[in-house]
Simulated scan of single mutants.
Amino acid sequence: METKKKILVLCGGEFAFKSIHALGYEKYLCGIGIGKGDPFYVEGLEKECINNEIPFKSFPTKTSVKRMLEWLNEVQPDHIFSIAFPYLIPQEVLNYGTEKFINFHTGPLPRYRGAMPIFEVLKNQEKNTAICAHFMNQAFDQGNVIFNDQIQIAKNETFGSLATKMNNRMGQIVINVAHMLDYASKIPSTVQDETEACYYEKPTLSDTFIHWNTMNASEIIALINACNPWNTGAEAIVLGEQIKIIAAEKIEELHNELNEGTILPISEHNLIKISCADNEIIAVKILSCSEGIMTAENYIKLKKLDTLICASL
């Protein structure tokens, strides 16, 4: 019986767990390294590794990653899989071996480089995304692409639902790559087309804020979904208060050129209707404010919005 490739996984936490389980079940897993993450997951993963006699190493800082080569030389993996590992691997560690490091990026490359491609594809209203397997080099998300595994984005997909979908798919993708490494003498790959490349920094407050006077209803809904649940919704100003809109829908009526960001008469379904750019309207269903997370109906009662005919935000 042929010996399977020894694969070590570098991860950032929970997102990689199904892949780790799949590699362990298929007898590929030879070690796990975790970057800075929730102590609950770090401690839990370390305990599981000890119980199953799997080498484990924590890399809590960027500086600690520089000492990774010593550990790799000790474990001697054939390949290293990176799944949501938070730090750039320095060249002195990559020198462990040519085409030994493979990253699994949660967005199509080269168009969606960066830390949170799930947020970006939803905000940009893409119809499809991908999990991209690529060889790693000394720059984030720039190594040669092995393949982009396309994933369809459903209507009204949220960050949470898409992340879950990709997490479930990731386990099969890492096994597919492991099989390729087992049976192919060389893994084909292609150089990324830099003319199509775009790098997105991690979203800041300005990236998650609704601008009523410039964004139409579809853009606002896309942003709200892209912020749910990791940011607890999209930031907005309503009646002078900063809130987060968690769920909303575009409704098929026009606001007859009212100022953008105006609260319209409350709907019969107790939803908060707000005017947007391009004469469009959204209906807010769930939001978060200083009093807590609540339905639009409860917010209407709390702020007595049912007494308003129209009100500027």
Score class of each variant (00 low, 15 high):
K100T: 03
Y41S: 06
E53I: 04
T158Q: 12
T295D: 00
Y25I: 14
A236T: 04
E235K: 03
L10E: 03
Q172R: 15
C276N: 04
G97W: 07
G24S: 14
K5C: 13
N167D: 08
N225A: 07
L72E: 05
T61H: 12
K66S: 09
N213H: 12
C30Q: 10
T307L: 14
Q150P: 05
R67M: 13
T204L: 14
S185V: 13
H255K: 01
G160Q: 07
D193R: 06
L271Q: 04
Q150D: 04
A163H: 14
Y199M: 03
N103C: 04
E2T: 11
K250E: 05
D182K: 11
E53F: 05
N167T: 11
M180H: 11
I83K: 11
A226E: 13
L10T: 02
K165M: 10
D306Q: 13
N176V: 02
P110I: 02
Q242C: 04
L239H: 05
A130W: 09
R67L: 15
L302V: 03
A236C: 07
F147G: 00
M180A: 13
Q172W: 15
L162Q: 03
D141W: 01
E99N: 08
H179I: 09
E157A: 09
L302M: 12
L122A: 01
I251G: 01
P188E: 14
L305I: 03
P55L: 04
C11D: 10
S206V: 15
A247L: 01
H269W: 04
N167P: 10
F159W: 11
P86F: 11
D78N: 12
P60Y: 15
T61A: 09
G171F: 10
K18W: 13
Y299I: 00
I309A: 08
E260H: 15
D182P: 13
P39L: 14
V9Y: 09
N168T: 01
E235G: 01
S218H: 13
L271F: 12
I246C: 02
M180T: 07
Y199A: 02
A248E: 00
A296V: 01
G240A: 11
A222Y: 15
V191E: 09
E253I: 07
T106E: 05
E46V: 12
K4M: 08
P86H: 12
L10K: 08
E201Q: 15
V174R: 03
F81I: 03
A248H: 03
Y87T: 01
I272V: 07
F101V: 06
V191F: 13
F101W: 06
K66H: 15
P77W: 12
T63Y: 15
I118M: 04
N51H: 02
F147H: 04
F40T: 09
K303Q: 06
M136H: 09
E92I: 02
K186H: 10
A248G: 10
P110G: 03
P108D: 01
E196G: 11
E257P: 09
I237Y: 01
I102S: 10
T262P: 11
R67Y: 15
T208K: 15
I282G: 02
